[in-house]
């Protein structure tokens, strides 16, 4: 099942050129760029692994693309996303986030219903590989 999280996730996968253009846009707004990867795309999993430190003083997208290349090489079958951080409020807030790498075979989700007290029903979603 195709995971849809962050910007552009209902579009076809971005090409490297398109990713670089998006990163250039982020840098033009003075946003810092961070790379994160994970093998657990559950929407409740907000803690992805950081790939290096966020990059605060880049001028050109090439720097990010080099890191992305390295991350893809090290973790080819994971989800990788690019986060852009905006610091205008005095702390770094994620202002844009998009997936730039997916495993060949994406996991799927199942919904489980659990009967609780009364006739209440609790729902959980599990990742199925």
């Amino acid at each position: 099942m195709r995971i849809t999280q962050g910007c552009f996730s209902f579009l076809p996968d971005l090409t490297d050129e398109q990713i670089a253009a998006q990163v250039d846009y982020c840098l033009s707004r003075d946003w810092a760029i961070g790379l994160e990867y994970t093998d657990d795309p559950h929407p409740r999993n907000t803690y992805w692994n950081m790939w290096g430190n966020p990059m605060f003083d880049l001028r050109d997208a090439k720097g990010v693309m080099m890191e992305l290349e390295a991350c893809r090489k090290a973790h080819p079958q994971t989800y990788i996303r690019i986060n852009a951080f905006d610091s205008t409020r005095g702390f770094e807030t994620v202002t844009m986030s998009f997936i730039v790498n997916r495993p060949d075979e994406e996991p799927t989700f199942v919904m489980r219903r659990t009967e609780a007290d009364g006739r209440a029903i609790r729902y959980t979603h599990d990742v199925i590989r």
Binding site: D60, G63, V64
Partner: peptide
């Protein structure tokens, strides 16, 4: 070194 090179990219 990579950090510096990344910063210098495009310049």
């Amino acid at each position: 070194t990579r950090e510096v090179l990344k910063r210098a990219m495009g310049g």
